[in-house]
Computed example of a mutant assay.
Amino acid sequence: MKKIVIYTAIIAFIFTSLSPKIFLVYIEKPMNNSEQTISFGGPIPFLKQKIQLSENTKDYPLEIKLQPLKETKTTFSFIPFLISFIISFILLFSVAGLFLRFMTKSENRDHK
């Protein structure tokens, strides 16, 4: 059981860390200000970047990817990252528990 918790925590940490690269930001129409702060990450965004958006309406809808961290000013928020990690851990742990429950044969089951 201890190994399952450790492996699940490692996978949840990797998934949470890579989520800003996985999930894109979708902007449907132009905004009033062309410089916007965009949030990345999932399930709760924890990275924020200031991005210059196009003012041309023909460019919309836009899918914005996370820019390299060295090139743009990026703000990291620890509490949303921690909450995202916990959500990912709980989801993965429940799926692992269900998988192991149905894939392993238990000697304590009562067969009638």
Rank of each mutant, 00 (worst) to 15 (best):
K3A: 15
V5D: 08
Y7W: 07
Y7F: 10
I10L: 10
F13Y: 04
F15C: 02
T16C: 04
P20T: 01
K21W: 14
V25S: 13
Y26A: 09
K29E: 10
M31Q: 12
N32A: 13
N33F: 00
N33M: 04
S34P: 12
Q36L: 07
Q36E: 05
S39I: 00
S39F: 02
P43R: 13
P43E: 08
P45R: 07
K48N: 05
Q49V: 14
Q49W: 00
I51R: 12
I51G: 13
I51D: 10
Q52L: 03
Q52H: 11
Q52A: 01
L53K: 01
P61W: 00
I64E: 01
K65N: 11
Q67E: 15
P68I: 15
L69A: 15
K70Y: 11
K70G: 06
T72A: 12
K73C: 03
T74D: 12
T74E: 13
P80H: 06
F81R: 06
L82Q: 04
S84H: 09
I86D: 07
S88I: 08
F89Q: 00
L91G: 03
V95C: 05
A96K: 03
A96Y: 06
G97D: 05
F99H: 03
L100W: 09
L100P: 07
R101W: 13
M103T: 09
R109G: 00
K112G: 13
K112A: 13
